[in-house]
Amino acid sequence: MLTLQRVSVGYGDAPAVLRDVSVTVRPGRVLALTGSSGAGKTTLLHAMAGLLRPRDGAVTVDGQALRDRDHAVEHRIVLVPQDNGLAPILTATENLQVALVAGGVAAAKARQQTAAMLDRLGLSGQADQLVEELSGGQQQRTAIARGLALRGGVLLADEVTSELDAGNRQRVLDLLHDEALRGVAVVFATHDPEVAAACEAELHLVEGRAEIVRD
């Protein structure tokens, strides 16, 4: 279980972006992280992912203080970043397979899981295309496919439906809820109120503070 207790986060010597944030990311639920542009959604996800150390308060995973990104990976915290984080000179298939093999999945199984996940995201036809040749929406879906294929215990997704049409947006939401059904704790940052309404819980960020809208 991932828990933030009175966490304050910022960059360098600048004032804190977020102050006194407390939330528990619960297995089996999808938590929408909402707020205007610049409200701190990405900052909070980075703290949850071990990329930012809090100035105050504590981020704990399974009762242990989260040390850094490597520690988060050890605890199966998967981050799908807003900029997709894909290698542009690799194909969609290669991006997934490299991540899976690096995570200890055998090559044959990685190929099987990659094909299945790309198919679930409607990307079978783009499997062998370089990422740099894909549209923005196709790149988003490839990043989501990679994140889902890693089968983490906590899945953090940052604005991953912003470039998707209505059909693919719903496809992604369905997949995130499927992850929750298998016991994954999902945190989904979004500026889309309709997407947020489809999640079980909502944490809204405003002026550096966090407010539970639905729990």
Score class of each variant (00 low, 15 high):
144 I>A: 03
58 A>Y: 00
144 I>W: 08
64 Q>C: 08
62 D>P: 11
59 V>K: 12
56 D>F: 00
100 L>G: 07
131 V>C: 10
148 L>A: 02
125 G>V: 02
113 Q>F: 05
54 P>V: 09
124 S>L: 05
120 R>Y: 02
53 R>G: 11
131 V>I: 14
73 V>R: 15
87 A>L: 12
98 V>I: 12
50 G>E: 13
144 I>E: 02
94 E>N: 12
48 M>C: 14
78 V>H: 00
78 V>G: 02
140 Q>L: 02
56 D>Q: 13
105 V>T: 10
50 G>L: 09
40 G>L: 09
111 R>Y: 01
64 Q>T: 13
96 L>K: 05
152 G>A: 04
49 A>W: 08
84 N>S: 11
44 L>T: 06
92 A>H: 00
94 E>V: 09
66 L>V: 14
37 S>K: 08
156 L>G: 05
134 L>N: 04
72 A>Q: 13
140 Q>R: 02
76 R>E: 05
124 S>C: 04
124 S>D: 13
47 A>V: 15
44 L>S: 02
97 Q>E: 14
49 A>F: 10
128 D>Y: 07
96 L>E: 04
64 Q>H: 15
107 A>D: 12
76 R>N: 04
78 V>D: 02
46 H>C: 07
36 S>R: 12
83 D>T: 10
83 D>R: 15
98 V>N: 02
153 G>V: 02
104 G>A: 04
126 Q>H: 11
139 Q>D: 04
48 M>P: 09
93 T>D: 14
99 A>C: 03
108 A>I: 00
133 E>C: 02
